[in-house]
């Protein structure tokens, strides 16, 4: 008994897959933006002079990295309302993915910070920049350039992780694919097309990040 491919039903619902892809990208971008902020904060704290700052940053990374994303998403979605914090499913997913990506980005940024030569930081202090100004104008840009390649990896992972949003019924690509699958019973075609879309999107993100790497001068 053979399985013959019929993509017609999939193409009929292709716009739903595309809108799902757009939602996934939107979720990932929002989460990564917040996560980048969290990661920068925690990374600077983890190499900073404050013992409390290092402790908080270290605990944050340890907690989040030891939780599966799905569990974190469900925790935020179901537990926060009990604590009186009402978020819709989009907000709670973006929050969960932001927390999650923040922990990974902390490690990426921390490695980047450790790669900034001490003498370059001292040169910033020597011309009279304050500690904060040195962080903004010297340490952060040098660190970001050094971190760019691993930053790209993390961004791509976060985009793929947006598929977890299907678990709380956000109509992103995986959720839509599952619905089309159930509606049409074209199992192989549905997931082939969905996979193709993920691969294409990730390839586009990777190319964009690589062009950024080329644009900024190598040190």
């Amino acid at each position: 008994m053979g399985y013959s491919l019929h993509f017609g039903a999939i193409w009929a619902s292709f716009d739903r897959l595309l809108s799902g892809l757009a939602i996934g990208l939107g979720l990932a971008i929002a989460a990564v933006l917040i996560g980048t902020f969290l990661g920068l904060l925690a990374a600077f704290a983890s190499v900073g002079p404050s013992r409390l700052g290092r402790l908080i940053a270290g605990s944050y990374v340890m907690m989040i990295r030891n939780l599966p994303l799905l569990v974190l998403v469900l925790l935020v979605y179901f537990a926060l309302p009990q604590a009186g914090i009402r978020l819709d499913k989009y907000e709670s997913f973006i929050g969960a993915l932001a927390l999650y990506s923040g922990a990974y980005l902390t490690e990426v940024f921390r490695a980047g910070l450790l790669s900034v030569p001490k003498g370059v930081v001292e040169a910033g202090r020597a011309i009279g920049l304050t500690r904060f100004q040195t962080g903004i104008w010297v340490t952060a840009p040098v660190m970001l350039r050094n971190a760019l390649p691993s930053l790209g990896n993390t961004f791509i992972s976060m985009f793929k992780d947006s598929s977890i949003a299907a678990a709380i019924a956000i109509p992103e690509l995986t959720f839509e694919a599952r619905k089309i699958n159930v509606d049409t019973f074209r199992v192989v075609e549905t997931w082939l097309v969905a996979s193709g879309l993920y691969v294409a999107a990730c390839f586009a993100i990777a190319s964009f990040l690589r062009s950024l790497e080329r644009r900024f001068p190598k040190f």
Partner: peptide, 9 residues
């Protein structure tokens, strides 16, 4: 400084 320490960016 001995090792210049220019801001590389």
């Amino acid at each position: 400084f001995q090792s210049f320490n220019l801001f590389p960016h």
